[in-house]
Design a protein around this nucleic acid. Sequence first.
DNA 1: CGTCGACTGAAAATTTCTTTTCATGACAGT
DNA 2: ACTGTCATGAAAAGAAATTTTCAGTCGACG
Lengths: 290, 290
Amino acid sequence: MTVASKTVSDVIHSHFGVLTRAEKQLAESLLDNYPVSGLGSITTIAENAGVSTPTVVRMVQKLGFKGYPDFQAHLHLEVEATISNPIAKHDRWAQNAPGTHILNRFADAIMSNLRQTLTDLDTATFDSVVSLLSDRKRGLYFVGGRITGALAEYFFTHMQVIRPATTLLSSNSSSWPQYALNMNAGDILIIFDIRRYEQEMVSLATAARKRGAEIVVFTDQWSSPAAKLARHAFRVRIEAPSAWDSSVVTLFIVEALIEAVQNSTWDETKERMKTLEGLFEQTKLFRKPG
Amino acid sequence: MTVASKTVSDVIHSHFGVLTRAEKQLAESLLDNYPVSGLGSITTIAENAGVSTPTVVRMVQKLGFKGYPDFQAHLHLEVEATISNPIAKHDRWAQNAPGTHILNRFADAIMSNLRQTLTDLDTATFDSVVSLLSDRKRGLYFVGGRITGALAEYFFTHMQVIRPATTLLSSNSSSWPQYALNMNAGDILIIFDIRRYEQEMVSLATAARKRGAEIVVFTDQWSSPAAKLARHAFRVRIEAPSAWDSSVVTLFIVEALIEAVQNSTWDETKERMKTLEGLFEQTKLFRKPG
DNA sequence: CGTCGACTGAAAATTTCTTTTCATGACAGT
DNA sequence: ACTGTCATGAAAAGAAATTTTCAGTCGACG
């Protein structure tokens, strides 16, 4: 008999009628807190159900599995399907792109990075950072390195629209001490530092901490040394089929943060954005009169 | 040592630094598709990671577990927490109520954007742009708007490492005419222009065309007016569950281009990068003597 | 009341998994 | 070049799990 695409739960239900007393007892136990209860060894689940191990073997064979390992393999697949995310199953990308094309390979890598990053990412961390960034009493300072400078700038540009008191540090580290000097207790320093890590980031972070600033770090899975000084750190997967690291997932998180912050302070942001729109229009008029 | 309430994932991360090569390899394998990948037997996961079973045992002990069964028991508890308690830490990718957290909704949107963009994208266009950018006889000019300026800068920073004759135009449009004046026939102007489109982009593109430059445009699905003047245009999906447009997929294409260009001119790029690395090192020595 | 058939778990047999031991090879420091 | 340290996996030893065997139990039915 084949168990094909039906879930283990389905199979148990459909066979419930032909099960014996001890087997029904076992089935109940398995369905209770399904499918996690089937994760352990045959001994464990036999004990939990209050039956003997041979009963387990007989039942899974009656259900159509080859043996207990086979049964458990099916269960594992189900757990995986339950836990793992929707983006895991991306079928064919661009049909016109052959499988080996760089675009496809890149897409695969980015998918995997995104999936892993989100798996590791604690939503509580994310939410905490959002509320930190939403607090208008705190000044925001953004800094990035040679490559990540663009990300810092992107983040900064948006936050500057959303709220006041945002500053972008030049990517030239010699000016950093002056910025640190201006920081007040409760201010936030957002650091982008992925390998190869910049030496001066640690000094900057230390100086900021001394001034009482909170630190949020965007780094890679191997963690910048500056992350040790941070209140919150985002460990992003950055590997790509390339000589360079990928910033795509980092940008993803930045954009999600932007939206979340904007959303949490919408009432205040709304007016601000309207005013700003007006200013932009005015600037254009100044430059192109008529 | 106790591993108490920290998740296995946390423990792996916090120990990542002290892991050896094979152990890191194993850790990667475990974190990939965590926590499901740790469900099988020690033999299975060792095979999946391409390491020996003793390595597995040594690592889990190094992580503070009593042995593999202990390690797996913790993992099982986490799986249980994940599945049976939707509000638990791992509720992202929510199985029952998909897309409640902003991260989920963003991920869905980006996935969809990426898929659609790749479906619409002609690989021939991509490859043509790669060969244009790989041609060292052509000068490269990058320009972006208020928001997209960061993308232009990111692209520029990488290309500057890979090849000579790259220029980043200031995002202040008043200086653009001077840059246009310097362009030669065959040079390439890479424009980032997504809604709301910048008026001056068309003027710049027109001026560049007059000088004989080729134009490559990154725009959105509604197309910047500058795209009409372009040799090649990337129409990227930019919609996000946000008041802002998403640049994630644009950055994706930029990174793919960077890799493809680097790859197609690796022999020349190699030496160049080595020299550059040396220069960076030297700079550091200058800044931090001793 | 006796017989039969089916169910069940104890225990043995078997298989698989986990842990330990140990030889090898790589590498840093002398 | 030598030496000691460490990482690694093959293989053996040990432990546990899985499957099979088998005898005891129970109820159905004559």
